[in-house]
Write a protein that binds this DNA or RNA. Sequence first.
RNA 1: GGUACUCUGGCAGAACGGUUAUGCGUGAGCCUGCAAAGCUUAUACAAGGGGGUUCGACUCCCUCGGGUACCUCCA
Length: 462
Amino acid sequence: MKLQDTLSNIEQEVDVSKKIRIYLCGVTVYDESHIGHARTIIVFDVLRKYLESKGVEIEFIQNFTDVDDKIINRAQKENTTAETISVRYIENYFDDFDRLNVKHATKYPKATEHIDDIIKFIEKLIEKQIAYVTKNGVYFSISKFPEYGKLSKKKIDELQSGARIQIDEEKKDPLDFAVWKFSDVKPVWDSPWGKGRPGWHIECSAMSIKYLGENFEIHGGGRDLIFPHHENEIAQSESCTGVQFAKIWMHVGMVTIQGEKMSKSAGNTKSIKYVLENWGSNIIRLFCLSGHYSKVIDYSEEMLKENITKWRQVETCYYELIHACGKNHEGVNAIIKKIGTEFDDSLENNFNTHLALLAFFQLVKETNRLAAAEKLGIEDSLIIKKEFERMLFVLGLSIPEMTEDKKQEIDDLISNREKLRIEKQFDDADKIRDKLNEMNIELIDHKEKTIWMKKENIKSEN
RNA sequence: GGUACUCUGGCAGAACGGUUAUGCGUGAGCCUGCAAAGCUUAUACAAGGGGGUUCGACUCCCUCGGGUACCUCCA
């Protein structure tokens, strides 16, 4: 598999014959997650599901930043503890992302649970004279890491001249950043240098190395983390271990809204809760995967609507497949195999989910075409269904299961309607259809038979 | 100001030095008791501007310009 690597700025081959270790920078848990967060996490969810579906062993670590100024500020505002805030929003995170059908990471380490590891990490940096203590905290000395700037392609002197960083007389260089901040405001921990809390970047270095080793395959996050977060992680980690940190840096493009980056500070976010409520998980996932992961995608209702159309086609396809009963045999093997290969190739080639979706929709269209022409037999439907479900799984889309009782009830209603239709009692037949519609069951009248499909209820469509 | 990314038809969005992807939308038709859904088909001569290389460029080179992001916390 090939992936675009931010560090080398070229597509790098990933060796999938061995275990793939992935570290994804998660969220700071101080507020609700929005659709921008969702995109990054969904992209990585599909990546890991695809690789796992190919039999690749995956170790997937995603952190929670649960100690941070924003959390503390929020706690003060609400007159509560930082822990209350972080616990609340971690719960909120799982609530959102479970509904988004995101598979749980191997582990979700939290900064507050790794203070010892962080302190040990800092001790090593001090020992190596890469970090130094001031009256404000412990700082990483960027002059000790000559490659500083290699990820974000920034030159140190340019950064210095453009620095908008607050002047801190104690720092040796304005670009030096805190790995430990002295503080008396809870939460604080004792350290060899004084009471305080860790800086933001150090937790990811300490935790990724702890769980994945000094040199692992993929480190990812949103594009906005390239500088300073990931740049600093590299500096800390590589100067501590002396070996290359992540092999590949994979950065997911921002979600914009009316051309502007979606962010808390801009106040233009759409929360996952809101979008789930109005559009549902499948539409969100289709939307988030509709462009190449490295590029910006613009959030708009128009785009979400387009994905409803597509999702209805997918639903139709599914129900055509499960209702197939004829003996017709079109020999779909070759075409399905071709589409399946296209799907895989698209993902193998720099993880192009847009092209993979195109392949998926091609399969949907092909199926619906056969069904409409009364040419979808059982044998073919089984072949298609297998591939359909594989893609559905990798993309993380889901069609809710129905109970057998419910299915029976629908079948009974349909056969009643059939009788009425034969007797040309169309008014009564239509009443049954209306009743089914109220249950979100839509009927598809083929020449030979009527099939039903359960439409996902999408609020914004009404 | 610096750096990165980006600029393709109404919208979304690929590939490729030569053959007008594809999807959505829109039009028409088929199917239907009617609908819905679905299907079929038609529809855009598009490549930010200007130069160059080439027999030929959306694709390579130069140049000018627009947009966004990062340079402070941010997925």
